[in-house]
């Protein structure tokens, strides 16, 4: 019997019957589950992480509340309604930082966009071992990824090429992102908050989360020069961001250091090449470099409480004269990336 001559309802019934077998197949794969004491131990570890996540929010909210109260009693500060406090001009990074990031935006915008090809190649090293190479298909639904060209394998199909505010992003969505820094920032904040609501994580659209999101896109996204420029311009509007001068990654490559202040002290950092705006390495201050904390989720959780209601405590930002003079440990090194036409090839 040919498939095309059957009634669709018969096909549906057949498939339903066959699908009963999938559960049987799945049961054959069952491995021994972790013991209940193992699960209990995981549960304790999770509780500890949650407790650490809550701590900065509480500290920062208290600090912000103190600032709001003191601002409210300054004579002639614009009235005594709480709304007047939040109507004050938004803080911005120091002029030197703003100038540098604006110049980086111009540098990034002046780069020519690489010609797309069928694979996107990346070579990334981290402190846990040798560099990892990958070739991701830009044309198929499933991404092909390989640490070794001889061992290319298909991974879970997804059309995402990068992450915007922790949400998967396709090529088409990336190209449709707004390029006006203020609109881009608003979109990123809204996406962060929505993503936090969806996953039950504490996300507020804070400077720390925004910085992480920008670092993600500069590091992995095949972002266009225009988008890179917009990301730099957006960074220049985040009051917790500072440019700290020159730095060197573990490969000895020199670049400019851009950081964001963390509420409990320390920084998250990126090292960028001032010649073309490329991200060279990502890192943090040593007190923030434990492997468990290297995930963007935990990074996001460093963020303080947001201004939940008009007149409520504002987001945490460091004092205007804040800077960081401690060491920075770069643990992810972006060695090379670019489009190539076959798995196993590397960009020139």
């Amino acid at each position: 019997m040919k498939a095309g001559h059957r009634h669709p309802a018969d096909d549906d019934q057949d498939a339903t019957t066959q699908l009963a077998g999938i559960a049987t197949l799945a049961r054959q794969l069952a491995t021994a589950p972790p013991s209940v004491p193992d699960i209990a131990s995981r549960a304790r570890a999770w509780r500890r992480r949650q407790a650490r996540k809550l701590a900065p929010a509480v500290v920062a909210a208290a600090a912000a509340a103190a600032v709001a109260v003191s601002a409210g009693v300054i004579p002639g500060s614009g009235g005594d309604s709480p709304a007047a406090v939040t109507a004050a001009p938004a803080p911005a990074p120091p002029m030197q930082t703003v100038r540098f990031l604006s110049s980086m935006a111009s540098v990034a915008a002046a780069q020519s966009a690489p010609r797309p090809d069928v694979f996107w190649y990346e070579r990334v090293a981290d402190e846990t071992g040798p560099a990892t190479e990958s070739w991701e298909s830009t044309t198929q639904t499933g991404l092909l990824r390989a640490a070794d060209p001889q061992q290319t394998s298909a991974i879970a199909p997804t059309a995402a090429v990068t992450y915007f505010a922790y949400e998967p992003l396709t090529f088409a969505q990336m190209r449709a992102l707004p390029l006006d820094p203020a609109v881009l920032a608003a979109r990123m904040r809204a996406t962060l908050r929505a993503s936090g609501r969806a996953t039950g994580e504490h996300r507020t659209g804070s400077d720390q989360e925004m910085f992480e999101s920008v670092r993600y896109m500069l590091g992995w996204g095949q972002a266009t020069p225009e988008l890179r420029a917009a990301l730099y311009r957006m960074l220049a509007t985040l009051p917790g961001v500072r440019v700290l001068g020159q730095g060197t990654d573990p490969h000895g490559r020199r670049g400019s250091v851009i950081v964001v202040a963390l509420p409990l002290g320390g920084v998250r950092a990126m090292l960028v090449d001032p010649a073309d705006g490329r991200l060279l390495a990502a890192g943090a201050s040593p007190d923030d470099a434990s492997p468990d904390d290297a995930s963007p989720d935990d990074a996001a959780s460093q963020a303080p409480a947001p201004a939940a209601t008009p007149g409520g405590p504002g987001p945490w930002t460091p004092p205007a004269d804040w800077t960081y003079r401690g060491p920075i440990h770069y643990n992810v090194i972006f060695e090379a990336s670019g489009y190539v036409n076959a798995v196993g090839r590397r960009p020139e």
Binding site: D126, T128, T132, S134, Y163, A294, P296
Partner: peptide, 13 residues
């Protein structure tokens, strides 16, 4: 699963 996939992009291994 979604979080783990995001982390993998940050830490390949």
């Amino acid at each position: 699963v979604r979080s783990a996939l995001r982390r993998r992009r940050l830490e390949r291994n």
